[in-house]
């Protein structure tokens, strides 16, 4: 389910053009740390395109491996290095998504929250805005909004 959500985010967020290597560069969904999805993510993006771009799933063990990436899922395995990751990605137009439980939600733009056996979204729109991402109001409707300060 979360893998589908990752794919769905691509539909509701706009990236600035410089976040891509070139016009034909694929849309990259990256997973940092231990991959919880297995092949589900590949299954979700297979055959899909967006604005003429194909989808590519990349997996990173370290933040330094990240070159071009549009959506980055930060696995729970990286919970200790969240601060470090945030600092490393500062200024880069990468939509960060995580399911790490952090009430302050530091450095992560969208957090998956489990609630009554359903997955809810908690979005820090300011953080996304700060790196040039515009989140569709449609995405904002079913989500819960937080601020960096909160």
């Amino acid at each position: 389910m979360k893998a589908v959500f990752l794919f769905n985010f691509a539909q509701f967020v706009e990236w600035p053009p410089q976040s891509f290597e070139d016009a034909a560069a694929p849309f990259v969904i990256g997973v940092l740390g231990t991959d919880p999805f297995g092949s589900a993510l590949e299954g979700a993006v297979r055959g899909e395109t967006l604005n003429g771009r194909s989808f590519v799933v990349e997996r990173y063990r370290s933040v330094t491996e990240i070159r071009h990436c549009q959506v980055l899922f930060i696995s729970r395995s990286e919970a200790a290095r969240v601060e470090e990751i945030r600092a490393a990605l500062a200024g880069r137009s990468i939509l960060t998504v995580s399911d790490i439980e952090d009430p302050a939600q530091r450095g992560v733009m969208i957090r998956f929250v489990a609630e009554n056996n359903r997955i809810r979204l908690r979005i820090n729109a300011d953080a996304a805005k700060a790196v040039g991402l515009s989140i569709s109001s449609k995405l904002l409707r079913p989500a819960e909004l937080v601020t960096s300060a909160g």
Binding site: M1, N8, Q11, I119, L121, K138, R141, P142, A143
Partner: peptide, 12 residues
């Protein structure tokens, strides 16, 4: 308007 709700499975 319903796309997001459907996409993110938000019946409410």
């Amino acid at each position: 308007n319903s796309t997001a709700a459907l996409a993110f499975d938000n019946a409410k």
